[in-house]
Amino acid sequence: MHNNYPSVRTYFLVFGALLLLLIATVGAHFVALGPFQPVVSLGIALLKALLIILFFMHVKASSGLVKLFAAAGFLWLLIFFLLTFGDFATRYWVPTLNQ
């Protein structure tokens, strides 16, 4: 598990990418993207998170089990988001059954 840890060079490369993405996300704030604004900002944040997980946290070099556990947390969160938003989005829909 420890022989294929990323080299120091990789760390600095990843760090550089993270800073660039930071600049990108701040830049995107000034561009009037309208409805795409949250999509872009969350997309960049997701990308940064993936970079950190895969390289800084060595998940890329870890066993399948660690990858599974890393993904499990986010998967459960997705369940939570989807079903809760299912309620909030459809709360005021009134079926036109009887009219």
Binding site: G86, D87, F88, T90, W93
Partner: peptide
């Protein structure tokens, strides 16, 4: 007071 549709899914 939850949405009817969410009630059916659950």
């Amino acid at each position: 007071g939850q949405s009817i549709y969410a009630g059916m899914v659950f």
